[in-house]
Design a protein around this nucleic acid. Structure first.
Lengths: 243, 243
DNA sequence: CTTTGGAATGAATGATTATTCATTCAGCCG
DNA sequence: CGGCTGAATGAATAATCATTCATTCCAAAG
């Protein structure tokens, strides 16, 4: 929808390269501070200090504090949009691609945990029109998962379900790792979380034909731990009261 | 942990009944405004106006603006904690209780959609100690779902899974209705959403023995639409671009 | 009819902070 | 070299609000 990656947001400065570099600085600082303190608790002065520039400079690259937020959120969503296809690169088996997509999604969320939470918290702090931009990005990312799902269905590996709905469940599953990290980390590791999720969704989605493929995949270890996915219901239970 | 429902938050006013009534007014106004505009965009003056009191009065019943937020969030979580057991009242079959719990959760979330989103957005705006209070409430509510799940497992209707993890998936499923309403409403109705979810989780969780019970339940119509749960993958697809 | 004290009011205060802008700086060109 | 131009600075400005508090209200008690 826009030539380079940065739409709508205007800058006083003309030098493309400089704009890119400076915005990079600003956004890096902003994401960190927004994630830690939230949008409203963070001042432009703080961002400027952390970015190593003056407060006035920021307004040469951005027209609002809200623009800083918008750019920050877009940078997070962009990391989704890059990592997921990257993880699927080279895989052709639909099931393997599906698994890779979900795994990748969970892992990016883990890497950018605070930032993911930021996206949930702060999107509404944006005026309607800019918020729309964010939603579009989200829909676009979902499209990656959706496509993987559809392929599995087309191959008869997954049963016919409402794809969009299941996509949302998958996306939500990934996001939850960040949103509920405070509790989940007491229960499982990231990899366990992913394994549990893949197993869970598999049971809900696979056709008999799908199961056969799936078992082969799992044994081959294309991704994820080979077996014993669901066998241990009790494990790290007690940790809850011990912290 | 506390005699009445309102812990920690101090009031200048001594009359218990009055405190209860006034806080009710204040919270009702606050929840509405916070949900619509967010915490920081909402001023105490606005809350006062909507509640039909003076701005100064609020500080007789609360020590902070943050306390207003705390009370607001607690009121939302309390509605969960009430509605869910209420919906399970009288049901003894574990599967029926489980279904009722999930349904009830989704429906409260739907009723208090904006408020649910508020909880996600604003919990971090609270200082650590008050935030802890919220988390405890959440864990408590989850306990309701968890118990229902455990019963189903104990009866051999559900397979042995990591109960806490699955609980989070269920909770998340309910919350997502509010968090992603902007998109989901284009895809399905609330009841369809619930039906889809129950079916999906059923497939992932039921044992063969469980399936037999489940079919009976569904036919008897204890809750939810009797049949045709999974049969229609395509349906309201097109709506997306039409709005 | 006073008195008294808890409730309620809302104008005034004091901080905080987004945003501006007069000024300085640095490189480049003729 | 001057003189320009686009970048960068950061102090000053202007608003916005949470919070306070001097005052008023009111109902019950004496």
């Amino acid at each position: 929808m826009h030539p380079n990656g940065v739409p709508e947001v205007k800058s006083q400065v003309t030098d493309e390269v400089l704009v890119h570099r400076r915005r990079g600085q600003i956004i890096a600082a902003a994401v960190e501070l927004f994630a830690r303190q939230g949008f409203y608790r963070t001042t432009i002065q703080e961002i400027a200090k952390l970015a190593g520039v003056s407060s006035g400079l920021i307004y040469q690259y951005v027209s609002d504090k809200e623009d800083v937020l918008l750019l920050s959120l877009l940078s997070v969503l962009d990391s989704y949009k890059h990592e997921i296809p990257a993880a699927m690169e080279g895989l052709s088996d639909p099931l393997a691609r599906y698994r890779a997509a979900v795994q990748a999604y969970c892992r990016v969320v883990d890497q950018r945990r605070e930032a993911t939470v930021l996206a949930y918290r702060s999107t509404k702090s944006l005026p309607e029109d800019r918020r729309q931009l964010i939603k579009n990005h989200e829909i676009e990312t979902n499209g990656l998962i959706e496509a993987a799902l559809r392929d599995c269905i087309a191959e008869g590996l997954f049963r016919e379900v409402n794809v969009e709905l299941v996509t949302y469940q998958l996306v939500t599953f990934a996001h939850s790792w960040a949103l509920k990290y405070w509790r989940l980390k007491q229960l499982v590791t990231l990899e366990e979380y992913i394994a549990h999720g893949l197993d869970f969704f598999a049971r809900a989605l696979l056709t008999p034909k799908g199961w056969r493929h799936y078992s082969k995949l799992a044994d081959a270890g294309t991704a994820g731990p080979p077996k014993a996915i669901a066998a241990k219901p009790r494990k790290q239970r007690r940790t809850a009261s011990g912290t």
